[in-house]
Simulated assay, not measured.
Amino acid sequence: MGKNKLKKFADMSTFRCALQYPREVLLKEGFPYVGKWHEDFFGNEGGITLELGCGKGEYTVALAKSNPARNYIGVDIKGARMWSGAKEVEETGIGNAAFLRAEIENIDKFFAPGEVDEIWITFPDPQMQKTRKRLTSVRFLQMYGKFLKPGGVINLKTDSPFLYEYTRRLAELNGFEMLVNTDDLYGSGMADPVSSIKTYYESQWLSRGKKIKLLSMRVPDFSNLQEPDSSDIEKDDYRAYPRHTVQPQNVSSPDL
């Protein structure tokens, strides 16, 4: 492990805004803020928005800056990656943002029923071969339903045509209330100041000519959800390039 990564891990352990509870810590210690995020951590009654798979934390930080009356929590297991956002929060004194280093598979262990108002899922791995690992699958949606308040909103922002189509079919099959549904956010004129916030990875996809998709939805009933048939959805072929790499200009991109 490089010295720079070790330093970031050391920094994270000193940041008040960074809570580190990977599975082994969670099992050993439990989590102290379940049902107490407002009173014991944020010290206010503002609504809570989660960003799942927050990466460097740009979205979480930008959201917190844009709306000081609401609280924002970025979740990722990569501590060295989210260090960037956590460091900015610490240095600038942003009081309505936090970062939780934990596996998303255990996310229901960190919140009480109805404690979260909104979820953002930003550019997750589409998991084209493993339905259960998709962050918009029935497995994860039912997990979110344990702590999302009635009428809470789930947002998916993605570059993946596969994940967009899969999630759109799941929403249609289960009768979700669709608030936003676009396969070309910036070309549709539907972008607003919140959905227009761009992460590092989003900028990479846009530089490669990829269209950004957005689904915002309410789930009326998290019980008895059904998985859609996704066997005929065309797979994303541009994943052969690393997510952090801009596609070479002399290689044509598939039309999305």
Rank of each mutant, 00 (worst) to 15 (best):
C17Q: 14
K28A: 09
F31T: 12
P32E: 07
E29D: 15
K28M: 11
E29F: 03
T14Q: 15
L27S: 05
L19K: 10
I48R: 01
Y33R: 05
L19N: 11
T49S: 14
R16F: 10
G47V: 04
H38C: 06
D40Y: 02
F42N: 10
H38S: 15
K36E: 13
G47C: 04
N44E: 01
Q20A: 14
F42I: 06
G35M: 11
F31N: 10
R23T: 15
G46S: 00
F41Q: 09
P22C: 10
D40N: 13
I48D: 13
V25Q: 06
H38G: 14
E29K: 15
C17L: 07
E24C: 08
R23W: 04
A18L: 12
G35A: 06
G46Q: 02
T14Y: 01
K36I: 08
Y21F: 14
V34H: 04
C17T: 15
E29L: 08
Y33G: 08
L19A: 07
C17P: 05
G46C: 01
F15C: 07
T14C: 12
I48M: 02
G47W: 01
W37Q: 02
I48S: 00
H38K: 15
F15I: 10
V34S: 01
D40M: 11
W37Y: 06
R23G: 07
L27C: 10
W37P: 00
G43M: 08
L19G: 06
E39Q: 14
F41H: 13
G35D: 06
E24T: 09
V25G: 04
V34G: 11
W37N: 06
L26W: 12
R23C: 05
E29V: 04
G43S: 14
G47H: 02
W37D: 10
H38P: 01
G30S: 08
K28W: 00
D40L: 12
E24H: 15
T49F: 06
G43E: 09
E45G: 01
G43A: 13
R23F: 07
E45N: 13
A18H: 12
V34A: 11
K36L: 14
N44F: 04
A18W: 08
F41S: 10
F42V: 04
K28C: 02
Y21M: 11
K36T: 03
Q20E: 15
H38V: 03
I48F: 05
E45L: 12
P32N: 09
P22N: 05
L19V: 07
G30Y: 06
G43Q: 03
K28T: 11
L27G: 13
F41G: 02
F15D: 00
C17E: 12
K36P: 02
G46E: 01
E45V: 08
E39L: 00
R16V: 05
F41K: 13
E39M: 05
L19M: 15
G30Q: 08
G35W: 09
Q20W: 09
T49A: 12
F42S: 04
E24L: 07
R16Y: 07
I48N: 01
F31D: 12
T14G: 12
H38D: 06
P32C: 02
V25W: 03
Q20G: 09
E24Q: 14
C17I: 13
Y21E: 09
G47F: 10
V25M: 11
L19Q: 14
K28Y: 09
Y33W: 13
